[in-house]
Design a protein around this nucleic acid. Structure first.
Lengths: 244, 244
DNA sequence: GAGTGGTCTAGACCACATA
DNA sequence: ATGTGGTCTAGACCACTCT
């Protein structure tokens, strides 16, 4: 485990109900007990039950319908192991535990941001930024080519040693920064020279590209980056649920 | 407007605060008034304020940090007009109001599902399914090639006339079905013969592919589909926020 | 009409960040 | 120590779906 987290009541309730769904105590495509019954059983208020069910609904395990009841959805058949879940802030290391991750640094520069980058990072024109190109290698196979910009003032002491490991760990555990959120844009694109050189992409191999802005819990933008994935190695998943 | 919806208190509060952020009454990268002050001002309970702020946080307008306060994030610089938002259940028509949408039907068949499709739609092997291939054309340009499977029992009376218009409207307004949620998988892929023929894709043009399962509010799966987008025409956006 | 989930309140306590 | 947002309660009313 990463950190010891004190669980709240609704998290404990959610965990128990999740187990019941997985174990089949609550069958897929069937109604669960209603919120009042669950509140009585767990000896908590109905609102606490509702929060627990909200959590499970966001995971796609159940669907709540006002006036009707709560239906168990169960497992989703197109999920796969190499999907990156939509809400993943952890670095690659957390998504590929027990696998071998290497990083090759292609370039590492500092300069002033141009107009476009000033807007994306929301910084002044005289705020220096790091520009990093890094190749992430999973079990010996080139997987992602990252192109990252970060304000120097937010990431003091960044060096090649850190970049060979996990930048995420450095930000999180050494600098004690916390991520607030991220906005991602996903598209397909043609391979460029760098992709061909480093990702071993063929001239016609499409690239799955992510463009993203990440901000901290205090609202400052910490990163603007594009990352280019080999099309045959990665896909991305999103769960949309009504009424949230 | 599509439907007249009675707004709840927290939706009204959210709307007012959203306006204040847009108008600049609450400045980006600054703290908003705290929840108690807002509760007093709007004369509602603090929980109602919290629900309103949760809504805005999910939109990426603000970020809440326990022990600190609520920070206004403001507009996100990499958003663009042709992005499809992550939570879009509306058909294309709702996303492109005032633009000309046509549909060309490439094939329309009925048959029994194979093992794979039985799992994806969660139906028995003797439940007939529609199989539809449709080209969606926006303002004269081929945009999306859809390949859709739907159980016949859930969509009675489907015909070519409806498919030329909006299937979404037929499901929603004629059959009064309601979508519960969707699970989407996004990847880049190589163009196949159909893409080249109908999307006017070149042999090397990558395709942005969506694979999705959609379920109704009663938990039944209504659709399994793959849709293939011209890489230069569409991108997809996702907002991730911590603590939800 | 009966039963479901959604909203809302007033008040309480807790976890957390800053000073 | 103070103030923030997060959780939790008990009870109430509402909107919705099905019979």
């Amino acid at each position: 485990m990463d950190e010891i987290m004190k669980k709240t009541k609704y998290q404990l309730v959610a965990e128990e109900i999740r187990q019941r769904i997985i174990k089949g105590t609550y069958q897929a495509k069937q109604f669960m007990p209603d919120q009042n019954a669950l509140a009585k059983e767990f000896d908590v208020s109905r609102l606490t039950i509702k929060k627990a069910l909200d959590t499970l609904a966001r995971e796609g395990l159940i669907y709540k319908q006002s006036g009707l009841g709560t239906i168990v959805l169960g497992m989703i058949p197109i999920k796969a192991a190499n999907d990156s879940p939509a809400n993943a802030f952890d670095g690659m290391s957390k998504q590929h535990v027990g696998e071998k991750i290497e990083s090759k640094i292609i370039s590492f520069e500092v300069h002033f941001p141009d107009k476009d980058l000033q807007a994306k990072l929301d910084i002044a024109k005289d705020e220096p930024v790091y520009e990093i190109e890094r190749l992430r290698i999973l079990n010996g196979d080139p997987l992602i080519l990252e192109h990252t910009f970060m304000p120097v003032k937010l990431v003091p002491g960044l060096n090649e040693d850190i970049m060979h490991q996990s930048i995420y760990d450095y930000l999180h555990h050494k600098l004690h920064l916390k991520f607030g959120g991220a906005y991602r844009k996903i598209r397909a694109s043609l391979p460029d020279e760098l992709d061909i050189k480093y990702l071993n992409a063929q001239k016609i191999d499409p690239i799955l590209e992510f463009e993203e802005i990440v901000w901290l819990n205090n609202g400052e933008n910490i990163e603007y980056s594009t990352s280019r994935n080999r099309y045959d190695k990665r896909s991305y998943t999103v769960l949309d649920v009504n009424n949230f």
